[in-house]
Design a binder for these strands. Structure first.
Lengths: 349, 349
DNA sequence: CTGTTAGCGCGTTCAC
DNA sequence: GTGAACGCGCTAACAG
């Protein structure tokens, strides 16, 4: 019960032609006559022959594989739709291009070992999509200088990327809150070394400024995207002498933590207090009240990122644009977010 | 700004030895003197040379890659911890073995194209882990006859696999309900052509039999694992003249649908009605009341599956055990589930 | 225009 | 410790 390993030689022999002829047929080269082509194709089909991708990759200098790097831990924590959605978008697009997707779970050790670089050097991959990296991951800069690398939903000077416009998203959220009549809005920041966290903080600040609200330090607390940090910050807000009428948490899990803090104090949402988040995770529409939040189109981001990756010049033909050796600017695409208004936001009491 | 592509030739030249010597050094062969070894290793380290994996794979007849096939759609639907957890377990174990993980999103088209077989034939992968396949996916049988293939959390006669013991899990759930005093237990089945759905149905039936409960058809409704199907079935149960005191849904999403049906009728859980599910998805501990459920250790299953895959004989040396040509039975491992008791289950009113 | 020959891409392995 | 052959397919140059 074994399948004989067929090679291009076997096909050539069976068809009574040379190996190169078979190769030309496979690659649809027009110099092969219809008759020969058909005969060879027939034999290939019947025999179930498939060209060996390793040999092909060697010859073409192209592995036909793209790596998708996700943080080792986040794959647990974020198991929610964030990653799976992005990966679906990436996988779809890669499949359309006939490429495959290698998933790498990145740990600190992985980074220290320089495993990113190794993947390229050993010829395993043609490009790399980085999901969930931190703005402090400086090794990416060197990597991007040498190879096709693209950031998915984060940004870094000099590295190409595709991301959601969380600055604008947070700004819109602020406008939503202000339009409801809120003037005392508490903000719980996320992790500032993620692009998402950083951008939402900026959006909050500028939104507050735009509405002429004071940015008292009481109204800005630090969180870390975890439910527990949201719970703690929420508790502090609610125990303030003059508590905010609305709390804007930089992501949904923290907003859910706030919900808990509010419930513990017998507050009814949104009557007594408005709580909003960001991400639109699955949970956001299952908690009660359902969360008003900022939706990021992760599937589309994955898709766009993959397309953009293919557009990047490979290192072989990357050339400075100017005679002084300046490189062309790294292309970056920003995709709009969507404000999702549900029941957790309402006018102040 | 380019990295010169180094080959084994370059290293050999720099070290003043032959290519084979370099190869032997890389593979820690003892016939190389310490001095030479050190010199070569030094050059390799300093130059950042990495052996080309395509060439190596060609020579060794081993790609160093394992495919993980997940259903194209499920990656949305199940985005919950089921897949991400299994994949984490798989990725961890593969990394420990120095292998990489190729993720394939399987659609109907994919199956029709015979893409599974193609991956092996073209030499891209050494083995395949199948997650979320149906018991009706008969193409797997042929595949497993020829190549290293293993089912993750499902089973099929003649195909090796590692799965959770959902039969036992459902049985325990029934014992839990019975021990609380329930005698009228309604069951909402899942998709019967999944191993999980099938096993939980069996567990329900045997559990009912064990407790001497009647299996009236009123008390068995068909669901399809979706929240909506759980909602509908739950509604039918609750509108029964003699409604069950407990509902056992074959998974959590359907149990959540039941919760909704109960809420619509003003029932308080678990005082008026017990509702339990299966899977222990993230949501299960976020809905109110939190769900009593059956937990499957997906991370461990992923890990065990990967280990088991490596133990499988490769097709090159697969031999019948008996002279009559019988093949050795496909190894299967079953991992215990865990009953998670939360607030959604209690004694009957 | 059709198809062939030769050599390449890169590392492994085995006889010497 | 080395040379040569091998694994498999691609491509440039060339002959019919």
């Amino acid at each position: 019960v074994v399948e004989k390993k067929l090679t291009i030689r076997d096909i050539a022999r069976l068809a009574g032609v040379s190996r190169s002829t078979v190769s030309l047929v496979i690659n649809d080269d027009r110099r092969i006559s219809d008759e020969t082509r058909r005969r060879v194709q027939d034999i290939i089909r019947k025999s179930g022959y498939e060209p060996n991708v390793l040999a092909r990759g060697l010859a073409r200098r192209r592995a036909g594989v793209i790596a998708v790097n996700v943080p080792r831990v986040a794959s647990h924590v974020f198991s929610d739709y964030y990653f799976s959605e992005a990966i679906s978008g990436i996988g779809d697009t890669l499949a359309a291009h006939g490429d495959r997707m290698l998933i790498e779970m990145v740990s600190d050790q992985y980074i220290q070992d320089g495993a990113h670089l190794k993947l390229f050097r050993e010829g395993r991959i043609d490009g790399m999509l980085l999901v969930g990296t931190l703005t402090t991951d400086s090794y990416i800069l060197d990597l991007a200088r040498l190879y096709r690398v693209l950031l998915v939903n984060s940004s870094m000077e000099g590295v190409p990327g595709v991301r959601a416009d969380n600055y604008q998203g947070a700004l819109e959220m602020m406008r939503h809150l202000v339009s409801l009549g809120h003037r005392r809005i508490g903000f719980i920041s996320g992790i500032e070394i993620t692009t998402v966290g950083f951008d939402r903080s900026r959006g909050f600040r500028d939104g507050a400024k735009e509405a002429g609200l004071s940015l008292s330090p009481d109204l800005c607390l630090d969180g870390n995207f975890s439910e527990e940090s949201g719970h703690q910050a929420g508790a502090r807000f609610l125990d303030l002498p003059a508590r905010p009428t609305a709390i804007f948490a930089a992501n949904d899990m923290m907003a859910i933590g706030c919900l808990k803090a509010a419930a513990e104090r017998g507050l009814s949402i949104p009557r007594d207090l408005t709580i909003v988040g960001g991400d639109d995770v699955t949970l956001a529409s299952y908690v009660r009240p359902r969360l008003t939040t900022i939706r990021q189109p992760m599937f589309d981001i994955g898709r766009e990122a993959t397309e953009a990756l293919f557009q990047l010049p490979s290192w072989r033909d990357r050339r400075p644009v100017a005679p002084d050796g300046r490189m062309p600017p790294a292309p970056t695409k920003v995709i709009p977010t969507e404000l999702v208004v549900r029941e957790s936001s309402g006018p102040p009491p």
